[in-house]
């Protein structure tokens, strides 16, 4: 084979070894071309096997559940079952009472709420997570942020996220009333303790351990349940510095 043909063959073999035309060319070129083709094909098999990473457990099921999750999210609350209607009436009563009693959030609460909600809008897929994250993973992430829990808390999504210059831990916990998003900020700011809301979304900020825990959800009862869970998990750690709510 000529040098030019051999070079062109090698280039094409390296760029697209699956091209069926290469087999004919290898036969026509003779020399070492057929060996090169065989070696390239063996390499492709190894490469293909290496790139075939397995799908994580339940991923396909989670993907297949997207339409149902979205449709349920889009439905009005009164079509989601009679128990929800009862819960909603109770919430309405609590809501009216808290609206009259609730104070305007402090500027620090508003600021923490705004940056937290802005961060959540970047990771909407986190709300779909349903499988539980390993307790060791959560412990390790929170420990990096300075918080040590005395007992594990079930978490469905966790990620280390830089927010407002702090190394926060962004988590999601699935509750019967819908997902609750949490962001743990390692730096305490007691002035930011409070409640906030935007549209249908509510938020609550508490001091927990050495930092702040922000909880955001559409359902205030879910926030209350998650708050209890976290306060109990952090209790006795000797780190709880404020218990205002």
């Amino acid at each position: 084979m000529s040098d030019i043909d051999a070079r062109s063959f090698r280039l094409r073999l390296g760029a697209d070894p699956g091209d069926p035309a290469l087999k004919r060319e290898a036969m026509a070129l003779g020399g070492g071309a057929q060996d090169q083709l065989r070696q390239a094909q063996a390499f492709e098999q190894a490469l293909s096997a290496a790139l075939a990473v397995p799908l994580p457990d339940q991923l396909q099921q989670r993907l297949a559940a997207i339409p149902a999750a979205q449709q349920s999210k889009g439905r009005p609350w009164f079509t989601r079952g009679p128990w929800l209607a009862v819960a909603a009436s109770l919430l309405l009563l609590v809501g009216v009472a808290s609206l009259t009693l609730q104070q305007e959030p402090s500027p620090a609460t508003k600021r923490l709420g705004t940056i937290s909600m802005a961060h959540l809008s970047h990771e909407p897929f986190a709300l779909l997570r349903t499988s539980e994250v390993a307790a060791e993973t959560i412990d390790s992430m929170l420990a990096d942020a300075g918080l040590r829990l005395q007992r594990p808390v079930p978490v469905n999504y966790a990620s280390r996220c830089p927010v407002d210059g702090q190394k926060t831990v962004h988590m999601v916990i699935q509750q019967p009333g819908g997902p609750v998003s949490l962001i743990y900020f390692p730096e305490a700011n007691l002035q930011a303790v409070g409640e906030f809301s935007r549209g249908k979304t509510f938020g609550k900020t508490i001091a927990l351990g050495p930092g702040m825990l922000v909880m955001i959800a559409e359902d205030q009862q879910s926030i209350a349940a998650v708050e209890t869970l976290w306060r109990e998990a952090a209790a006795g750690s000797g780190q709880q510095i404020a218990s205002i709510w």
Binding site: L51, A52, V53, L55, P56, L59, Q60, R62, L63, I66, P67, Q70, E123, P124, F125, A126, L128, R129, S159
Partner: peptide
């Protein structure tokens, strides 16, 4: 889903992030 997950995995080389990318992608597809 399998191909897209593998593609996402080799982009970011992290199982959890790749799963998130795939979920977000299929959410948009829906």
């Amino acid at each position: 889903s399998t191909e897209i997950y593998r593609y996402a995995y080799w982009l970011c080389r992290d199982e959890a992030v790749a799963s998130d990318l795939v979920q977000e992608t299929f959410l948009r597809a829906w």
